[in-house]
């Protein structure tokens, strides 16, 4: 067996995660998170917050809850089953920032928490910004 055959052999026999089950779990839990978010929105509107502010408040609430759940160690246990269900909503972003921040606490607040905080979320921010610049330029020329 040469290297190529060995790689093909190991890849073939390596079990994959069950895509169907994962998709269903992600759909249900992701949907539940969004429904909770919607619930908060309805609640904020009900108590008389202006619609724009209520939308922001709703995101902030989900970010806070995801951060809190990360801190008390529930988030990774839910995400283990939910996968993209917790990753795609704003909760995933919150977890990506809070988890390295908690982790790096032992290296101090400057070189630890502050410098490690964006180690996972950083690429998303950088390329998200780049993408929005490109989108902005295209939009500018088309709308002109």
């Amino acid at each position: 067996m040469n290297k190529k055959e060995y790689l093909a052999y190991t890849e073939k026999r390596a079990k994959r995660s069950n895509t169907v089950v994962n998709c269903i779990k992600a759909f249900l839990i992701g949907g539940l998170i969004c429904a909770i978010g919607q619930g908060f929105l309805v609640l904020y509107l009900y108590i008389g917050v202006a619609e724009e502010t209520a939308k922001t408040l709703e995101s902030v609430t989900l970010i806070f809850l995801a951060g809190l759940f990360t801190g008390i160690g529930w988030f990774d246990k839910i995400a283990k089953h939910a996968g993209a269900g917790t990753l795609v909503p704003i909760t995933g972003f919150s977890n990506a920032v809070t988890s390295p921040a908690i982790d790096a606490k032992s290296e101090g607040f400057v070189m630890g928490v502050a410098s490690q905080m964006f180690v996972i979320a950083g690429p998303v921010i950088v390329y998200g910004t780049v993408a929005s610049i490109i989108y902005g330029i295209i939009y500018f020329f088309i709308m002109k």
Binding site: D76, A79, K80, A82, N95, T98, S99, P100, I102, I120
Partner: peptide, 8 residues
Amino acid sequence: FPLEYGSQ
């Protein structure tokens, strides 16, 4: 990844 990071 960090311990509390939600990955599969």
